[in-house]
Design a binder for these strands. Structure first.
Length: 116
DNA sequence: ATTCTGACAGCAA
DNA sequence: TTTGCTGCCAGAA
């Protein structure tokens, strides 16, 4: 029997990557939302920690579409330059101001609702 | 094996 | 109101 039914079988890190990759272009989500989708709503830190290892992944992880609850680009410093993340977001149509996505509430993408 | 950290989130003062 | 502390889970040293 194929055990690879869904991301639930994968490791926590892989799950984060899977969900992150599922984020549509032009959309954005928060660490907490992803954490809740994974089952542990309070493990938002793990999401960030997992994305920290996304650099070790051969695939591209749109980690720039994942920001904190306030829409703040808390992880921009992990993109090499502090402006890379903002540039990527603006390139997708987001309005970033002072390291914060002003359209966060408008373009918020909740995996719980979209992927339920 | 134990301890600390970490791209968050929620609650308390 | 803002600021700070704790809790959460998993990986790395």
């Amino acid at each position: 029997m194929a055990r690879q039914k869904s991301i639930e079988n994968r490791d926590f890190f892989s799950r984060v990557y899977e969900v992150t990759k599922l984020i549509p272009y032009g959309r954005i989500t928060s660490y907490g939302a992803v954490a809740r989708y994974l089952g542990s709503g309070r493990s938002a830190r793990l999401v960030g920690w997992a994305l920290n290892s996304c650099h070790s992944r051969p695939e591209f992880i749109p980690a720039h579409r994942v920001v904190n609850r306030k829409g703040l680009l808390t992880g921009k410093r992990h993109f090499g330059n502090s402006t890379t993340m903002q540039q990527l977001l603006e390139n997708e149509g987001f309005s970033v101001e002072d390291d914060q996505v002003t359209d966060f509430d408008e373009k918020f993408w909740d995996p719980l609702k979209e992927l339920k």
